[in-house]
Design a protein around this nucleic acid. Structure first.
Lengths: 227, 227
DNA sequence: TAGATTGTTAATCGATTAACAATC
DNA sequence: TAGATTGTTAATCGATTAACAATC
């Protein structure tokens, strides 16, 4: 996937590795908050349910941050992963679609300390536009009309957008985002989005996730019948 | 992963295939609602952003449901995939943790027509226990005390649970679920859960998903600097 | 030095793709 | 029959794992 044109720089990591780095970072942050200064690949791997070989291989792509015979310095590793992911800074994000799901994400406390802050909320329904939303203690944002979405993105240099509209409006919103210069989209709408190459879409389809679980339940049930 | 002990039955599909089946099913349902009766692997593949070769290979694991020279009968394929996933019936699910996210999932309209219905909501906070929640037009459930969770699961044969508690309570809730006989868990708590082998966990970590997106933004930014 | 643990290599495993024979 | 499209094969690609030399 992301092939590097600048060898030696941070790019060129395997896609599977990139998907695990946030999990390592999350666990390391937790270890640090508990006072750990040093951790072995064995211990960190156990904490996140991967093998220590896989963890070491993943970390080796970031360059040698460990010490043989000793382990990894927790703070050093946190810095290295955060820098690789780009979450050593705050990213403003917009949420488009202020239904139940969109509002719950707007209020989700787990974004702030992991690199994200809500810059604005958008919706198309005139009856809720202008409505104040307390996204955290004392912090209020007002729902904006989706017709201002493209302008807001350009003027505020937004790079990441979240789609929480119904499936029927998702492609339309996606087109607006892409035209406004967005290359990174997280979407919860249960529909496959059409985007130009270079645009990165992470789709979270809640019902699909549950259906992956039912497959295994179903398989077990069939096996019992077959026995 | 899921190795079949009953050859010829539905199990033994590659994990990657299982993860795509819900997407195919979703797209096929949409095509059917638009009146399509027949579809080619090329057209369906385009709709869900996979190659037609991959789609045909995936579908071939379910047995030959297509007709050479013609394509796939949409209804037949929907039946086949739904049966494989086990979503030709309704699965009752419980949601544990009634914060913003848990409540928005409880009210999420996208579950009902894809095989799931909310059987109960649980929380530990005494001030909201007993509170009525209108999960859909005219359908109300009352928040139950988490101390009744295990009993409820056993008495109602619940097989799938969703964890939307804070990270700090997630492992504890998970242990209760596993002890009550649950083998399928979807969790949104940003912490790695420890479960016995055989228990299936789908973790959705919202901030991690966003961090995967920032990696690519970050990489692009580094490339520009390097040039 | 002895013990511990990383970083890396090579082997294995699984997933994807291209191509085409089978067949409607 | 000719054209279309599936189902399958074999090649390729990428990810995981085990093992161990390097080295603290």
């Amino acid at each position: 996937m992301a092939q590097s044109r600048t060898p030696g720089k941070t790019a060129g990591l395997p896609a599977a590795t990139v998907e695990r780095l946030p999990i390592y970072l999350r666990a390391l942050t937790e270890f640090k908050s508990q006072g750990a200064e040093l951790i072995s690949s064995e211990d960190l791997a156990n904490a996140v349910n991967v093998t220590s070989a896989q963890l070491r291989k993943d970390l080796s792509y970031l360059g040698g941050h460990g010490t043989r015979g000793v382990g990894y310095d927790v703070s050093v590793l946190i810095q290295a992963i955060a820098a690789t992911l780009g979450v050593d800074k705050q990213w403003p994000i917009v949420i488009v679609g202020c239904g139940n799901l969109g509002m719950s994400l707007a209020k989700y406390a787990g974004f702030a300390n992991r690199g994200f802050k809500i810059a604005a909320l958008f919706d198309a329904a005139s009856e809720i536009i202008g409505k104040p939303v307390e996204i955290s203690e004392g912090q209020v944002v007002y729902i904006k009309d989706v017709s201002f979405l493209a302008t807001f993105i350009r003027e505020n240099n937004i790079q990441i957008a979240v789609i929480t509209t119904p499936a029927t409006s998702a492609q339309n919103v996606c087109d607006i985002l892409v035209n406004a210069g967005i290359y990174s989209i997280m979407t919860f709408a249960p529909v496959s989005l059409n985007v130009p190459s270079g645009v990165d879409v992470r789709q979270i389809d809640l019902a699909s996730e549950l259906q992956i679980l039912t497959f295994h339940e179903q398989t077990k049930a069939n096996e019992v019948i077959a026995i």
